[in-house]
């Protein structure tokens, strides 16, 4: 990636200060979001989100497994992000690993809550089949196909869309199992359980450039940032997770201010996303 010249840097910073960004958006406007669901039929659920040039694919695969002994009534979810070298040559080989790990961890923190499983955005108790013995393991895999800034938001949105597209097959437990043995499960071919995704939070990243914050920064804008905060907010307006990146220090009042701005933005984003996802699902059903 070619670096930016001084003139370009000034242009970007100045534009943001004046509430006109390089592509004409206002500070708190998102790029047009394009949602497609069901792109990978082999997975239980999948979605592809395009925010401008940023292109991510997210899939959900469900497998049967054993719940953790500490939480016998909950299922398990694991999130994994992979940066494809198609997105940027520097992601080739092991180059993208750092970024991938960072994104995975951030996503996990935002969506899954703490170690005890409390406060997770996804309701894990709906994943259990036989308490203590069998539960669903969800593997959420994301792939960054093309990167043009604001990866975390896009990934969060993609996961939300993929989960709403996910169908988990209905399981019937065979009667007569006793004691410690593994009970037999009969998996139905036809029926599926749809996930309830209304509670899943979205992630909003606010990038501070100069004295103002913008949402949905492109790569160039991100290169100018001093610091950024990613906040995951759910429909009720509760904050599910918070990450601060960037070296510059932030005054606490600014942080609070950013949070309230994020909350405000998130409402619109959630509505937009939901309608887009519904449209995509409907379109998918018809085809």
């Amino acid at each position: 990636m070619v670096g930016l010249s001084l003139g370009e840097k000034h242009f970007i910073q100045g534009g943001i200060a004046q509430d006109i960004r390089s592509d004409g958006r206002k500070r708190l406007t998102y790029r047009p979001i394009n949602v497609e669901t069901g792109v990978i039929p082999q997975a239980n659920g999948s979605a592809r989100i395009r925010m401008g040039a940023t292109d991510v694919i997210s899939t959900v695969k469900a497998e049967l497994g054993k719940p953790i002994s500490l939480q016998p009534d909950k299922g398990k979810v694991s999130i994994y992000v992979d940066c494809s070298p198609t997105a940027a040559p520097m992601f080739e080989g092991r180059g993208g690993e750092e970024l991938s790990t960072e994104l995975s961890v951030a996503l996990q923190r935002s969506l899954l809550g703490g170690k005890s499983g409390a406060g997770a955005g996804i309701d894990l108790s709906s994943l259990v089949v036989v308490e203590g013995k069998i539960c669903w393991d969800l593997y959420i895999d994301c792939l960054v196909v093309c990167s043009d800034g604001n990866l975390l938001d896009a990934l969060g949105a993609a996961i939300k869309a993929a989960l709403s597209n996910t169908g988990i097959p209905r399981v019937q437990v065979a009667a007569g199992a006793s004691g410690d043995e593994q009970p037999e499960v009969d998996i139905s071919d036809e029926e599926f359980l749809q996930f309830d995704t209304s509670d899943i939070p979205v992630i909003v990243t606010l990038t501070k450039v100069g004295r103002h914050y913008i949402v949905d920064a492109t790569t160039e804008e991100e290169s100018q940032m001093s610091s950024a905060i990613s906040i995951s907010v759910n429909r009720k307006g509760h904050i599910c997770g918070l990450t601060k990146r960037g070296g510059a220090g932030l005054d606490p009042s600014i942080v609070l201010d950013m949070i309230s701005v994020a909350k405000h933005v998130s409402e619109q984003l959630i509505n937009k996303l939901d309608s887009e996802i519904a449209a995509a699902e409907a379109g998918d059903d018809e085809s």
Binding site: P41, Q42, A43, K61, A62, E63, L64, I187
Partner: peptide, 17 residues
């Protein structure tokens, strides 16, 4: 026409043919 089948085997495997 993509056709979806499910097979068993300890794990659930979604197969598309």
């Amino acid at each position: 026409k993509t056709f979806v089948k499910k097979t068993r085997g300890g794990k659930v495997n979604k197969q598309v043919r």
